[in-house]
């Protein structure tokens, strides 16, 4: 099962309250978030509203506020919160011994949210 996870480096690379990106096949990006509660989440880096780069938003609780028009997106489910409707695919992520792993299939396959961790 270890082989199914892609090691993308140590947790220290992302300061709490920030996100960083991982470009993948086809020019898309995955955004990896580190919350102030020290949880890690990965989403496709594209807001369900008008594809704003979620990695650049303000992170509070386990929500990111999109930098373009302030939609709030749940980091856990990828779902837009409040009145807004839409959902961005999530990528299964695991932290182990200080390193971040993403589910390999979700990173390289076409349909990130299809598989669960």
């Amino acid at each position: 099962m270890i082989g199914d996870w892609l090691d993308i480096g140590p947790v220290g690379q992302i300061a709490p309250g920030n996100a960083r990106t991982l470009p993948v096949r086809g020019g898309a990006e995955i955004a990896i978030f580190h919350t102030l509660d020290n949880q890690f989440y990965a989403l496709v880096n594209s807001c369900p509203h008008k594809q704003g780069p979620l990695s650049q938003g303000i992170v509070h609780g386990n929500v990111v506020t999109c930098p373009l028009h302030n939609w709030n997106i749940s980091l856990k489910s990828g779902e837009a919160l409040g009145e807004d409707k839409g959902c961005v695919p999530t990528i299964p992520l695991r932290v182990d011994a200080g390193r971040i792993y993403l589910l390999r299939e979700a990173v390289v396959g076409g349909n990130p949210s299809a598989q669960a961790a």
Binding site: Q13, I14, E29, V108
Partner: peptide, 24 residues
């Protein structure tokens, strides 16, 4: 610099023989 760099790059962006290179 981490604000401007990707976390890592998945190469060669193909499903087989994937490697991840940490950027910073």
């Amino acid at each position: 610099s981490e604000l401007h760099q990707h976390l890592a790059e998945v190469r060669p962006l193909m499903p087989s023989a994937i490697t991840v290179e940490t950027v910073s």
